[in-house]
Every structure is written in C-alpha cells, then in structure tokens.
Design a protein around this nucleic acid. Sequence first.
RNA 1: GCCCAGGUGCUGGAACUGGUAGACAGGCAUGGUUGAGGGCCAUGUGUCCAUUAGGGCGUGCGGGUUCGACUCCCGCCCUGGGCACCA
Length: 791
Amino acid sequence: MAEYNFSALEKKWQADWKENKIYEVANTSEKPKYYVLDMFPYPSGAGLHVGHPLGYIASDIVARYKRLNGFHVLHPMGFDSFGLPAEQYAIQTGQHPAVTTETNINRYKEQLEALGFSYDWSREVRTSDPSFYKWTQWIFKLIYHSWYNNASNRAESIETLIAILDKEGNATIDAACDDDTPVITSEEWKNYNEKEKASFLLKYRLTYLSETTVNWCPALGTVLSNDEVKDGYSERGGHPVVKKNMPQWSMRITAYADRLLSGLDTIDWPAPIKEIQRNWIGKSYGAEIDFQIENSEEKIRVFTTRIDTIFGVTFMVLAPESKLVQVITTAEQQEAVNSYVEAAKNRSERDRMSDAKNITGVFTGSYAIHPFSGEKVPVWIADYVLAGYGTGAVMAVPSGDQRDFDFAKHFDLPIVRINDAQHITETEADPTKDGKIINSGFLDGLSPKEAIEKGISEVETKGIGIRKVNFKLRDAIFGRQRYWGEPIPVYYSDEIPKLIDDQKLPVELPSIDEYLPTEDGDPPLGRASDWNHEGNAFELSTMPGWAGSSWYFFRYMDPKNEEKFCSEDALNYWQDVDFYMGGSEHATGHLLYSRFWTKFLYDRGYIQVEEYAKKLVNQGMIQGRSSFAYRVKDSNKYVSYGLKGSYDVTPIHVDISLVHNDVLDVAAFKAFRPDASEAEFELEDGKYVCGWEVEKMSKSKYNVVNPDELVERYGADTLRMYEMFLGPIEASKPWNTNGIEGVFKFLKKFWALFHTHDQLDLSEDPATKAELKILHGTIKKIADDVESLSL
RNA sequence: GCCCAGGUGCUGGAACUGGUAGACAGGCAUGGUUGAGGGCCAUGUGUCCAUUAGGGCGUGCGGGUUCGACUCCCGCCCUGGGCACCA
C-alpha cells in the first residue's frame, strides 16, 4: 500500500519555493495589488507554540487564494525585535540582547519555514536593525519638527508656526498645545532668547519634552505609557506602578483624538476593537462653565456633560492637585487642606483606586456663586475628582450623580431634585434623562435633552462658558529608561534639546558593560563611554516598544531603501494593507499608535492613505489545557482526581506530555519530578486521573504544545488544516490535539485518491456530470469561505 | 454600573439574504479484517414513544411577528471580553 509521505513531499516543495524564489514579488505589476500582513512577532526565547501560527495560517490562505485569483500579493514577515525580555535576560546573563535576539529569530524562521508559509523573506524587517531604526529615528525627527494646526486640521511643519509667531504672535493660532501656553505677541516672541524660543516651541511640537506625571515602574526601572499599565500593574511582568513627576518625551497623540475616532468609521475592523478604541479616546460633549468664587477674582471652571442638572448643584469639588486649591483656601481651613493634599500626593494610583469606596474630602472654606441661582455653594477638595480629566474640577449634583450623592451623604450636604422622573433613595442617585426638569428656573418643564441645548446657549450668551468637547485620551509617554530600544536622536546643548542631522542617522546603540541603571539612577545608556555628540550629552532614554511597529508595514514595501523610509513608487503601488491579521490585545497600543503615525505621515505628505489597514481580523487566542496532579498537603502522597475531595490537596502542574486522555503516566511523572520518585499514588480504577484547567499557554504551566512535533508526526498540511478546523478564527479556544487524526486521515485518503503505489495516477476519462457538480460546488464553497474572511 | 460579542448533541462546531437543524470531525457503541494490539473498513449515535412503519418534542428562558424562526422583534437569565471615581 502506497503511503502519503508528507515529510518528503513538503521538504521537496519548500526547497523548490526557496530555490525559485516563487514568493518574491516586485514593486510593479500589471495585476492589481493585494497586501496581506501579519502582526510581526516578538522573537521570544521560548519559540513558537501552536497558538502563534493560527493567524499566520489564515492570512497565508488569503494570500494564496488572492494569488490564484490574479492578484499581485505582498505577503511579508519580520520581527519586532526590541523589547524587555531580551534585556531582562541580558541583565541576568550579561549576554548582549542583540545576540539572544539573533538566536531567537533564527529559531522562529526555522519554525515558520517548516510550516510552509508563502512569505517573501527577501523583504524581512527587524526593528532592532540599524538600517530599520534609522527610519524610526527619522520619523521621530519629522514629528518633532511638526505642530498640529487645528485651523487646517492637520500637522504642519514647525516652520509655518514660526512664521506666524514672527508675524503676529500666537493669539490667532488654534493649535494642539500645552494647556499652560501663554499668549504672546510677535514682539515678545522676537525678544525671546534661543533657550526661551526652544522651550516655547516644545509646547507645540508633536513630540515634546516636558515635566509630566508618568507611570513609573520601579521594578522595571522605567516609565510606561497608559496602555502598558493594567490596574496599577505593569502589563509585562505584573510589577506595581506609581505616579511620579519627571521630564519626559511624549507624543502629542491627543491632537489626533478626533480623527482617530472618526477614522474608525472608514475601516473594516472588528467591532470590539473599534469599541475599545472609542472608549480609550473617550470623547464626550458638554460645556465648560465658570463659577465665580465669592469675594474673590478667582473662578472655578468645570466641565459637564449634564448642564441640564445645573440647578441641582449644591457644592463644588476640586482635585487635590488643582492649582486653585492654595489660592482659595481660607486661613481656618489651611491646615486641614494642606494635610489632605499632602496625603493625596503620597498615595499611589493603586491605593487611590482600591480605596475608591472610602469617601474622603475637605472643605476649603470658600464658596462659589451659582451662575444662575446666585446661591452660595461650598467648595471642597476630594480625590475622587481627577486632575487629569476635564478641568480638574466638578460641579457636584448629588441627586443625579452617584459619586456626588455618596459624598453629599457622607458630609451631610443638601441634595436637590431637579427632574420629575428622578427616583432618589436613601443610597442611590438617579441620573435619568427621561422626565421633565423641575426646580430649575428657566429650564423648568424642558426635557433633559432640550435643557442641555438651552443651558449651553444660555451660558454662551452670558459669556460665562463655552460648548466643549472633552477626551479621555492622554498624550503618550515616549521615553523608556531602558537599553534595548531605539536611541532617541537628541542631544542637549545648554539644556536645549537638539536633533541629530539626518546624515548622521542612525544613532546606533552603544555597547555597555552592564544593562542596569547607573549608580546615579540614570538609564543604562548613561554607562556608555563616549555617548555624546561633539561633547554634548546624548539623550539617555530609548524609544518604547511601539515605535518600530507604528510604521513597519510601510517598510515592507521597500525594505532595502537607504535614501527613504519607502520610495514613492513603492507607496504608489502598494498603498495600504488590504488584509491585516493579528491579536486584539494590541487595541489601545500598537493598533492606535500605528494609526496615529499613519495620519501624521499623511498630513506631512509622505503617504497617500490616512488609514493603513482597510481590513483587520483578530484571531482568537489559543489557550493551553493544563493538567494537574493532587498532592495531599504535608505528605508525599498523590491522589487521583476523583478522590481529592476527601483530602486537603495542592494541585501541581503536570507536563501534558505525561498525560493521555487525562490519565497520568505515573512512572514518567516520577522521573519528571524527582521529589515525587518515592511518592505514594492513590489510584481510581487502577489509573491516576488528572484534573485540568484552561490557562494561558506557557512554559511555566507545562501546557505548551510545540508545532515542530506535530509537523514531524503529521506534516505541516495536516497541522495547518487542523488549526483552521478547530473553530472560528476569531474565537479563543483551548488547544486540543485529539481531533487532528481526523484531518490527517482526510489528507491520507485524498492523496491516495490520486496515487497508485507511489505514482501519480489520474484517469483520462472525461469527468461525469455528477463529478463536475461536486467539483464546482466545492470550489464555490471554499471561495465563499475565504472571501467571507477577506472581504 | 455602562458598552460589545455570544448561548445549537457527549465534544469542537455547520446551517448563505427566514425555507428539511445538527454538515464535517472527534468521542462512544456494534460488527468486519487481524495471531493479538494498532491500523483500516462498515453501520449507528439530539431526545421521547413505537418490535416495525411511523410519530411527538427539540437551537439558554418567556412572549411576539410569519404559511414557516437557530435566524427577525420585545423582555429576562447566563457566559466571555472591554471600559470604569472620565463629571
């Protein structure tokens, strides 16, 4: 009986593809283009597990399908090779991250090639390669040399800003800039010295240096951007994160908040991703209103989306960090306020969040005048008001807002009903938008929606406020106090940041003896001797992980270009990504930053598209199925799954290769855990049965399934088909090898259909009608399935 | 709390715009082939009633629209994910 010799078959054709370069594509063609992109991996030391190729397999099917349908297909692969793990490894072993990275990449490429992907490897990029990060640095410079003109609604060269400043100062300029940017005349501007000019322009530049509150992670020794922090812990490593003030490079992504939001309507991305990005950008419509302080020139400006509730205001609350606090606090309250502010300052973000139910606050002693009723309302400070959002102050409406309600109850402040549909209980406020407004002067009788409109126009007429849109999105911190990242091409002369000339790029990472901060607490780059530009100190921070991945998809179009990040011809031909495949975990990181950089490059005229990926598909995560043995506490005895109820047991991870159908190979387990070699095993029905749980696939949980072994045993085609067979591509699911035999059998039978002994054997008879019907039905079904993924 | 997905046999999952629910595969069962095991082949497998023929009931729960509903509408329950002192 002839055999389906997948191993020989696959090796033969893979060698053939390589030798004849059949997947290499030129940047021109008569055919229409199609760009299929995978999110490039970070080459970790653990190698690929079966979860990684899931998306690559799906996108490879799309690439092959499009080729067969007459498209000129760009299907590249590369490596996101800067990152923390290689650096942590370097700290422990002294091994240069470049060396480990190289090793890991080679391993990844081997594994990927064995899986038979149709990548054009001649276009491979690596973000840690100087020929690549030269252009990351170049784009950084371009962003630095730009400002955002709200009037033209795009980024422009900083030269156009300087021209306006020279001519008429900044009074007429509507730009995305620091909140504390002073209004100056052209005279004042011209009288600035070099340093003053430089620091003034930093308030406008799209990448800028400023003293800001950052997420500082002491364990990692670096700052992190908001998306890298989850619930007060670092996303990588799970270390605590605290707030800290320090000078930092940031990217003014907030300038693009509106366009990042509206752009979502133009791209075919999964609804959950769009939703996450919308939430993250957090646009809300409302008004800013001034409340005059009694017996004072000062005003409190608040942001509200519910101006219809303004007659329900019975007090005001400032964030402890608000600059107004010191100004309006009365002498009697000074001491209480000071100690509250001091305490708030020393609390970490985590404490503040975990302590949310504890209501705290202190009265400033001052009163604000209600702009419509003229009544006096007390001004408090409390840390439930966030300094970073809106104006850092709120008008408190306890009847309509739960937080205000809780605060009012706690400090015994009045609660006023302002809507006839409000049902207020002893413990709950009611933010209803039904019903009619009551107790509210000129707003009485209106619906909340009408009252919001009327309220805002009244405020504007009286000149005490403006219609206002607010965003939650914050500027992205760009510096990392780390070694293994792109050097920021900046040096300091006279404390003024200056950029390295284009001709001198790339600024290459210097070698250092140890990958730790210096004794003075400077980042690792501080250890490099000769790390200066003509005697001026270089910037010591490096770029964050998302820098290279924010534009790599353009580099694939023209990866070897030494003159430009990508030639116009290549950009003209390839334009954008038609099909992008990757994980949804990058929703507020890579997938947002890359959109930002794309819009920026578009504004500055370097590319023709405002969104780089028309279609995005998220493959689900493949989880591991961990197996457990149960050790009786304080003993050397293991009990089978069904018996553990009668003991106090500790579950122990068991390597899944020692378990078949949940039955443990006890002898192998004893070898695997030497401390169990003498252990006693209590069995059920003569077997030791393991428990199981679905967890993340990881080495430490002994649940990793390696694709190499499956390729060896069944072949790449079987593995690829089986991964696609597992279920919908978007769904997360635990890996389970049980069903792979079915696919393997199918391929064996399929092969046997066309072979007699080992020879290809095809019938010369014309196909029957019935045969043609099945053939065309099958073609249609497959075409429809692939189209439904890629259209 | 708010916002997204989703809920179909023992399991993974099919079912295009409303038209024979459960394709395909795994598992399980029975039989064949084999010295045995494995492999391979065949048959069966939603559920209940019935020896058969056949019939009743079935897509989370309750209601509705329709000649006809897994599919559309309303309410509820559950699961997964996201956001969350955001004013």
